[in-house]
Simulated assay, not measured.
Amino acid sequence: MTTMAQETATGRTATPQTASTIRRHELAAFLRHRREHIAPEQVGLPRGTRRRTPGLRREEVAQLAAVGVTWYTWLEQARDIQVSVQVLDALARTLLLDPSERAHLFQLADANDPRPATECPVVTPALRAMLDQLDPIPACLQNGRYDILAYNRTYGMLLCDLDAVPPEDRNCMILSYTHEEWRSSIVHLEKSQRLMAARFRGSMAEHLADPTWKTLLKRLRTESPEFCEVWDRHEVMGASPRRKEFRNTHVGRITVDHTDLWLGPARGPRMVTYAPADEESRERLERLHAIARAR
């Protein structure tokens, strides 16, 4: 049998079966490490006097995550078993994983995280500083699903009071089809909806099996007959700069030029900017920024 060292020496890449085996062993080691570094008190369990295992016992993790002890033991033994996203979610919460560790867990399990993306690794302190520096030009960070990951003050008051919107609802598709204030702020709403749906369909072709994309699509089809009508047209469109008009409740009508600044491959995370298209719009955005700062 050819070893990994021999494969490396000969320049051959690992087979899919070998890659899967490597992932299982990395997952097992990661779970053991996290389990052994969590004190019982952190998850509400008594330490007791007979505890020899550092951190949590396997049966304690299994109980807290509501999975079978034997099944969890097999997982730590790198057995070739199927792991659902629901179980991975429960393990992530039980093991107190932070966002980066949670993402690592799902990657090792070769699974897609179904949790709505309210945070993203691309939202670095430097990018947040850039958003602030762009004020009074409205700007935000979005992913391919139109989740609004971060925004500056002017953007936060451009179409509605975005701070008042629950994080799980901060999605441009959801807002443009279900949020009345957001919808009323878009001058050419129907055109905007069709363009967004067409771009979303084009992006989703790469994520057809992704639970987060399927969950968003199901929610839109359930909550908006308008979306169903537009979606069933099967229109597809790529990203392109364009002019937009908004009716802001504080300063009136604003005309802007929309630009996407890509932070990775096209259809991935991007910074969205709305530069004023005329002097009147520039003055109104400055007034809106002043109102946002005074809040």
Rank of each mutant, 00 (worst) to 15 (best):
E180C: 00
E181H: 00
E181D: 12
E181G: 07
W182V: 12
W182H: 14
S184M: 07
I186M: 13
H188Y: 13
E190F: 06
K191F: 09
Q193A: 02
R194N: 07
R194C: 07
L195M: 14
F200T: 04
F200C: 10
R201T: 04
G202R: 10
G202P: 00
S203M: 14
S203T: 14
S203H: 15
A205W: 07
H207A: 11
L208K: 08
L208E: 14
P211I: 09
P211D: 05
T215W: 04
T215N: 00
L216Q: 05
L220G: 00
R221K: 15
R221F: 04
S224V: 13
F227D: 11
C228P: 07
V230F: 05
R233F: 07
V236H: 11
A239Q: 00
S240K: 06
P241I: 02
P241D: 10
E245T: 10
N248V: 08
T249H: 15
H250S: 09
V251L: 10
G252I: 12
R253L: 14
I254T: 10
T255K: 03
T255H: 01
T255N: 06
H258D: 07
T259N: 12
D260N: 15
L261D: 02
W262F: 00
L263Y: 03
L263R: 03
L263G: 10
R267P: 08
G268T: 08
V272A: 06
V272D: 02
T273F: 05
T273V: 09
A275H: 00
P276E: 05
A277L: 07
D278Y: 06
E279A: 09
E279T: 07
E280W: 05
